[in-house]
Nucleic acid binder design. Structure first.
Length: 116
DNA sequence: ATTCTGACAGCAA
DNA sequence: TTTGCTGCCAGAA
């Protein structure tokens, strides 16, 4: 777990937060997509790490809109309540079934394509 | 300094 | 097709 140091080394982290904040309402993206957008295509795990410490970042970060490439809510357990993430997504019009996002392909928002 | 782990992803058996 | 091992990078013990 990351400490509270945080410093200004958040280069990678801040970018993750930025992209995450740019995710449109009702859309979602994947860790890998963000990682690739940031350059390090194979550091998808770091994206999750960044989101794990997103509490250190001011403002609201729609981390619930970031799921793994299968559309699976792998991080729902990190939202305090295991159902929080699912509810947030459902609140945005997304349908979750068995911790998986339906129509993931349609709702998928790729920063590489959308932002470029 | 060394080792382990993690909200992933990709390829091998 | 499903399961499992490895690669990635950063941070904690």
């Amino acid at each position: 777990m990351p400490s509270l140091k945080q410093k200004e080394n958040n280069d990678f982290f801040e970018r993750v937060y930025e992209v995450t904040k740019l995710i449109p309402y009702g859309r979602i993206t994947s860790y890998g997509a963000i990682a690739r957008f940031l350059g390090s295509g194979r550091s998808a795990r770091m994206v999750g790490w960044a989101l794990n410490v997103c509490h250190n970042n001011p403002g609201f970060i729609p981390a619930h809109r970031v799921v793994n490439r299968k559309g699976l809510l792998t991080g729902k357990h990190h939202f305090g309540n295991s159902t929080t993430m699912e509810q947030l997504l459902g609140n945005e019009g997304l349908v979750i079934e068995d911790d998986k996002i339906l129509n993931f392909n349609e709702k998928f928002w790729d920063p590489l394509t959308e932002l470029k």
